[in-house]
Design a protein around this nucleic acid. Sequence first.
DNA 1: TTGATAGGTAAGTCGCCACTTTCCTATGCT
DNA 2: AGCATAGGAAAGTGGCGACTTACCTATCAA
Lengths: 102, 102
Amino acid sequence: MLWPVAEEDVFKALADPTRRRILDELVERDGQTLFEICTRLATKYGLGLTRQAIGQHLVVLESAGLVRSRRQGRYKFHDLNTEPLELIVTRWLRPDPPESTP
Amino acid sequence: MLWPVAEEDVFKALADPTRRRILDELVERDGQTLFEICTRLATKYGLGLTRQAIGQHLVVLESAGLVRSRRQGRYKFHDLNTEPLELIVTRWLRPDPPESTP
DNA sequence: TTGATAGGTAAGTCGCCACTTTCCTATGCT
DNA sequence: AGCATAGGAAAGTGGCGACTTACCTATCAA
């Protein structure tokens, strides 16, 4: 248990389509800055959002543990972290289907 | 591709804590009716929601393909369907880590 | 048919959330 | 120093979603 992240935060973070697209970009290439993400969202998806909006989305993703950031000079690089997603997968798996109970 | 369900619907359905608890109940026992779900949510979690509220949540879950229902007389039984969850899992998996690039 | 049970529908309220606008801080370059 | 770049913070707005209240339909039992 590395992050004291509530499941609530993870699901809420994933609820927004823009945030999901940000994750899509980061899975393609880690270590992007805010401006890079803005540019790619604009060119690839025609997203007409301001830099501030994307910045707020990144805060939400970080709070959910889905994105980790490292500061370097005036740049802040963002990395994808898929660990919290495992919570989702395992949560609603059938405990153990006994297979032969007619 | 069994249901024409948008990914948007799945993530939105999972965004609400009450709906997640409903899924928790269904993974424990399939085939519960609306009233059963209401009762169990109230007793186990102290959820003070009206029957109508739960009913609306079930509609959302069905639209997302996470719950399937079968009518039988005046009863309507609800079953969990975890297929849409696989979308979430596979979406942000790294394509193929080349492993040896130090 | 009457009454009870199981569920559906629709209007209305309220709070939250995404987004913009505006302004501010920090780092690097020359 | 001065300016541009990268990022952060905060107030305000608009819309959507969760919930309630109230009413309606359908099935079964007496």
